[in-house]
Amino acid sequence: MRVLVTGAAGFIGSHLSHRLLERGDEVLGFDNLNDYYDPTLKQARLDRLLPLPGFRFVKGSLEDRAALEAAFDGFRPQRVVNLAAQAGVRYSLENPHAYIDSNIVGFLNVLEACRHRGVEHLVYASSSSVYGANRKLPFAVEDSVDHPVSLYAASKKANELMAHTYSHLFGLPTTGLRFFTVYGPWGRPDMALFLFTRNILAGLPIDVFNHGHHSRDFTYVDDIVEGVIRTLDRVPGPDPQYDPLAPNPGSSSAPYRVYNIGNHRPVQLLHYIEVLEQCLGRKAQMNLLPMQPGDVPDTEADVEALRRDTGYSPATGVEEGVRRFVEWYRAFYRA
């Protein structure tokens, strides 16, 4: 297939592009290589993709409608995976406009490009952050998600609503994936594992919020990519079981689905740090701090819907996943 991947120089996007190319798909990567975090890391990911047969790249932003439409017209994708977005919960408290530009205006441009060019299936990144103030665990796609606690979360919930509108009005098949705390080699420097590793190796203390008492459904990047590809290959149709008198938020009478994509095995943050200490052979100095605004205490993904519909079965525990990350980090940074 011809697959357009936005955010192809990003953490998940670069891994996904490799997997699609390995199985014989053509991939057009689209990314603006912005400086939200170190652009040299994004360029390094991209440099691994550029020599590969079947890969092409266009530099551009989702907000740049003309550039995005030109990429669609030049490549004529059959399917699209939209992973480009302004990421980060905490940054959304500092720079809210970036989230509207990329995650709302940019996503509208993606929907319009898909609609007018007959794209067979749009898969897009949502986030576990949409569960916000929910406390019932595990989080299930059947749950209400009307209480976001950050603008980032609100923008991702908005993406799901916008996608449903296009599925309903124009018959565009869309699938939203609520990612749960993705980690692994080539990861994002603003995420905890990266920050912890850098500081521990430098002999600096690490900031541990909520005094380390919260838990996260840490999901290894290879398991995430497996789930993305399984959903990409399964174009949704109207749900024959959908009942408008008792609506299921995860499906619709339109060709629309939303899934959780996580490990379904939450891990206490303090245990995560212990595993990292073992892999690094060093102890961490911890600054134990209260929970930050916009954060939630615990996450856990109910992945039953994704397992039922695609056979998704995450296989990587944190002991193995953190070890692989540390090996990559030491090699990449010669640390």
Rank of each mutant, 00 (worst) to 15 (best):
V3G: 02
V5R: 03
G10K: 08
G13R: 10
S14W: 15
S14V: 15
H15Q: 14
H15E: 14
R19P: 09
L20T: 10
E22T: 11
E22H: 10
E22L: 12
N32I: 00
Y36I: 10
D38H: 11
A44W: 14
L49Y: 03
L50E: 07
P51A: 01
P53E: 12
G54D: 13
F55L: 00
R56N: 15
K59Y: 00
G60V: 06
L62G: 05
R65C: 03
A67R: 10
A70E: 07
D73W: 03
G74C: 05
R76W: 02
P77M: 00
P77E: 04
Q78L: 12
L83G: 00
Q86D: 05
A87T: 09
Y91N: 15
N95H: 09
P96Q: 02
H97D: 14
Y99L: 01
D101M: 15
N103E: 11
G106C: 09
F107I: 03
L108R: 15
L111S: 08
A113F: 01
R115N: 11
E120Y: 04
H121P: 08
H121R: 07
L122T: 00
S127W: 02
S127F: 04
S128C: 15
S129M: 09
F139I: 00
F139R: 01
A140V: 00
A140Y: 06
V141E: 15
S144V: 13
S144C: 13
P148H: 04
P148F: 01
V149N: 08
A153W: 05
K156V: 07
K156F: 06
A158Y: 12
N159M: 13
E160H: 01
E160M: 05
E160Y: 04
E160C: 03
L161Q: 10
H164E: 12
L172W: 04
T174C: 02
T175W: 01
L177R: 02
F179I: 04
F179Y: 04
T181V: 14
V182Y: 01
V182H: 05
Y183I: 07
W186Y: 08
D190C: 04
M191A: 07
L193M: 07
F196M: 13
A202L: 13
G203R: 15
L204Q: 14
I206S: 03
I206P: 01
I206Y: 04
N210R: 14
H211E: 14
H211S: 12
G212W: 13
R216T: 06
Y220F: 14
D222T: 14
V225Y: 08
E226S: 14
V228D: 03
L232D: 03
P236K: 04
P236I: 06
P240F: 06
Q241E: 12
L245M: 10
A246N: 11
N248G: 04
N248S: 07
G262A: 07
N263Q: 12
H264D: 14
P266H: 00
V267Q: 10
Q268F: 00
L270C: 14
Y272A: 12
Y272I: 13
E274T: 10
V275W: 06
E277L: 08
E277W: 08
R282K: 12
L288Y: 14
L288F: 14
L289G: 02
L289M: 10
M291R: 15
P293C: 05
V296I: 11
P297T: 11
P297E: 12
T299R: 02
R307M: 06
Y312H: 08
S313P: 01
P314F: 03
G317P: 05
R323C: 01
R323L: 05
A335S: 12
A335D: 13
